[in-house]
């Protein structure tokens, strides 16, 4: 929901946002894209910039747990929300999904990888054993130009399998 006070206040009211577990206050215009807030104001460059129109997923982050193209979200829309970027997925080390991308070679240049991993993380958080069509649906907004998605799919399947073993 739009928080009217911040929107109408322009620069005078700060953006309050929780990023990777840390409360942050920033003096940025309400219309500034979350992508640029993250990259330019917070130095969180793991979130990538590619199309800036919501078509590639390189900029994917979690906003209150939901995957969002940060190039489409404006600062005011993130007021009081909790944002998780690739840097915040795991406190230290690596999540299971990240480890599977590493093991299976689910990346090449790596530029799509943070966004891809964020989308996979969101998918598996909602549904630990998605069907193939669900995987396709969930990742269809994340473009990868290098891998042809082979390694990515193998990584996702591996993550599903390992998750099942862990919980099973």
């Amino acid at each position: 929901m739009i928080e009217k006070t911040y929107l109408s206040a322009g620069r005078s009211a700060p953006l309050r946002i929780r990023v990777n577990g840390r409360e942050t206050e920033l003096d940025v215009p309400p219309s500034k894209r979350l992508l640029h807030v993250l990259r330019d104001d917070l130095g969180l460059t793991g979130t990538k910039r590619s199309c800036e129109i919501g078509r590639c997923g390189a900029c994917m982050v979690l906003v209150d747990g939901e995957p969002v193209n940060s190039c489409l979200a404006m600062a005011y829309q993130c007021q009081s929300k909790s944002v998780t970027t690739i840097e915040g997925l795991s406190e230290d080390g690596m999540t299971l999904v990240q480890q599977c991308f590493l093991d299976e070679g689910g990346y090449q240049c790596g530029y799509c990888t943070p966004g891809m991993i964020v989308s996979v993380t969101a998918l598996l958080a909602n549904d630990p054993s998605p069907a193939d069509t669900d995987i396709q649906e969930a990742l269809s907004g994340n473009l990868c130009r290098c891998t042809g998605y082979g390694g990515i799919l193998r990584a996702v399947k591996k993550a599903i399998e390992l998750k099942r073993e862990q919980t099973g």
């Binding site: 460059t45 690739i86 590493l102 093991d103 070679g105 689910g106 990346y107 530029y111 990888t113 943070p114």
Partner: peptide, 23 residues
């Protein structure tokens, strides 16, 4: 012979700085 890439960790964690990430 299937090895983890030496540059992989930085890529999957988002820690690798690309040249367009520098400032």
């Amino acid at each position: 012979r299937w090895r983890i890439r030496p540059d992989g960790t930085g890529k999957v964690t988002g820690k690798l700085a690309y040249l367009t990430d520098l400032s």
